[in-house]
Write a protein that binds this DNA or RNA. Structure first.
Lengths: 130, 130
DNA sequence: CCTTGACCTTCCAGTAGGTGGAAGCCCTAA
DNA sequence: TTAGGGCTTCCACCTACTGGAAGGTCAAGG
């Protein structure tokens, strides 16, 4: 399989696939013309990477998950540890964003949003009237 | 005021303050020794930037907000437009993260997390059993 | 007067995870 | 044979900083 076909099937842009090869996540073969030649197993890895990245795992997490995926003797606890850690980070980020959203939506509601210069948003950001 | 004092008062690291000067957000004076010399107004700008960044506004948003802040004839509608756009992005990000969190917490609950290799998390990421 | 240490300066490089574009092969079909 | 599309590599750029090296400056203590 050439990179275009793999891109279509995996949903990853060719640039991203080349990048993943650069950083050692996949190791496709090469044809006599220098073209990358992807096996089924490469495809599966790339699809795995696409799904892991879509769940927000970092590249390093993906690398570890992929290694565990390849390891028939892995302990599921190792996988779960990575996922749980990630889940905690997601939850903490959601909390941060919720707090920002509360502040911001309050400010947007307060602001008249008309032609006049008086603006509670700027007041809040400047922390004194101006 | 030297950069250290401004850093203490604004809560921004010196590196960040220098960076903000590099990209033209603040323009402190210079003393005869080459040291940056910050006025009160620079301090206020930096504090403004700190709060805006803490609310997740991009640097470009901050630049625009700062310009509006400086403009006595601004229309509050312009400020609100920026804030509202940002709020929408925050909300969309929260929605994404909530969906990820749901998937992830489901998978973590499903996974036994013991010494055995069988793992629903990897199954899901690989999208076929292995 | 000299040293020490804290502070300041600039400049270069690196972070995450790609993306855009240029220059140049390769392959197929008309 | 020529046109097009796909493939290759390489280099630069993105956000918003951060780390570190090499070196100038300043105030205090001996």
């Amino acid at each position: 399989m050439n990179i275009g076909e793999v891109s279509d099937k995996s949903g990853l842009p060719p640039k991203t696939i080349r990048y993943y090869e650069d950083i050692g996540l996949v190791k496709p073969l090469r044809g006599p013309n220098g073209y990358r030649s992807f096996r089924e197993s490469d495809m599966h890895k790339l699809a795995f990477l696409g799904r892991s990245r879509a769940l927000g795992f970092t590249i390093e997490d993906c690398r570890n998950l992929l290694a565990l995926w390849d390891d028939q003797d892995r302990a599921s606890a190792d996988v779960r540890a990575i996922a749980r850690e990630h889940l905690e980070q997601i939850e903490s980020k959601i909390a941060d964003l919720n707090s920002i959203r509360a502040t911001l939506s309050h400010l947007v509601r307060e602001c008249a949003g008309d032609h006049r210069p008086d603006c509670p948003i700027l007041k809040k950001l400047g922390n004194f009237s101006k």
